[in-house]
Simulated scan of single mutants.
Amino acid sequence: MSRRLIRRILAATAFAALPAQAFAHAGDAAHEHGLAAGFLHPFTGLDHLAAMLAVGLWSALTQTGRRMLAAPLAFAALLLAGALIGTAGVSLPGVEPAVAASVLVLGLIAAARWHLGASASAALVGAFAVFHGLAHGAELQAGAALAGMVAATALLHALGLALGLKLRALAPVWSRAAGGAIALLGLGLLTRLVIA
Score class of each variant (00 low, 15 high):
Leu10Gly: 02
Ala101Thr: 13
Leu134Gln: 01
Ala22Phe: 08
Val55Gln: 04
Ala37Asp: 14
Ala81Arg: 00
Glu139Phe: 06
Leu165His: 09
Leu134Ala: 12
Arg3Ile: 14
His136Tyr: 09
Leu79His: 05
Gly86Met: 11
Gly180Cys: 01
Ala51Asp: 03
Asp47Cys: 03
Thr87Glu: 07
Leu18Asp: 10
Ala77Gly: 09
Ala29Trp: 09
Val90Gly: 13
Leu146Gly: 04
Leu163Met: 13
Ala100Asn: 08
Leu5Glu: 01
Gly137Pro: 02
Ala81His: 02
Ile182His: 00
Thr44Pro: 02
Leu146Met: 05
Ala158Phe: 05
Trp114Glu: 04
His31Arg: 15
Leu187Trp: 03
Ala36Gln: 15
Ala30Glu: 13
Ala71Glu: 02
Gly137Glu: 02
Ser59Cys: 02
Ala98Arg: 11
Leu170Tyr: 01
Gly89Cys: 08
Ala81Ser: 10
Ala183His: 04
Val173Lys: 15
Ala24Gly: 15
Ala152Ile: 02
Gly86Tyr: 08
Val103Pro: 07
Leu170Lys: 04
Gly89Glu: 10
Leu170Cys: 12
Gly86Gln: 09
Arg67Ala: 14
Gln63Val: 07
Leu187Asp: 04
Ala12Met: 13
Gly148Val: 10
Arg176Trp: 14
Lys166Ile: 13
Leu116Thr: 09
Gln21Thr: 13
Ala120Cys: 10
Ala60Ser: 02
Val150Asn: 00
Gln141Asn: 12
Leu161Asp: 02
Ala142Lys: 06
Leu170Ser: 06
Ala112Cys: 12
Ala196Lys: 12
Ser2Pro: 11
Leu35Phe: 15
Ala11Pro: 04
Ala181Trp: 00
Ala151Gln: 08
His25Tyr: 09
His31Pro: 03
Leu53His: 05
Ala111Ser: 12
Trp58Ser: 06
Pro93Gln: 07
Ala162Pro: 10
Trp114His: 13
Arg67Gln: 14
Ala83Gln: 05
Ala77Met: 11
Ala14Met: 11
Val55Tyr: 04
Leu161Glu: 00
Ala14Lys: 07
Thr153Ile: 06
Gly117Leu: 06
Leu185Glu: 01
Asp47Leu: 08
Val125Ile: 07
Leu163Gln: 13
Leu163Phe: 03
Ala50Ser: 07
Ser2Leu: 11
Ser175Met: 10
Thr44Met: 05
Leu163Ala: 12
Ala138Met: 11
Leu46Arg: 03
Ala158Tyr: 02
Ala12Leu: 14
Ala11Gln: 13
Val173Arg: 15
Leu79Val: 05
Val150Trp: 00
Gly38Glu: 06
Ala147Asp: 09
Pro72Ile: 07
Ala81Cys: 11
Ala122Val: 01
Ala98Lys: 01
Leu53Trp: 05
His48Lys: 01
Arg4Gly: 15
Leu190Met: 12
Leu193Met: 12
Ala37Ser: 13
Arg192Leu: 00
His25Lys: 09
Thr87Lys: 05
Thr191Gly: 15
Met52Val: 05
Leu80Ile: 01
Leu161His: 00
Ala37Pro: 03
Ala118Pro: 12
Ala177Trp: 13
Leu46His: 08
Ala77Ser: 00
Ile85Met: 14
Ala151Thr: 10
Thr153Asp: 03
Arg192Met: 09
Trp114Phe: 15
Ala169Trp: 00
Ala178Asn: 08
Pro72Asp: 07
Ala60Cys: 00
Gly27Cys: 07
Ala36Glu: 12
Thr13Ala: 13
Gly137Cys: 02
Met149Ala: 11
Trp114Lys: 02
Val55Ile: 14
Gln63Ile: 04
Ala178Tyr: 00
Gln63Pro: 00
Leu189Ala: 10
Ala14Ser: 10
Thr191Asp: 12
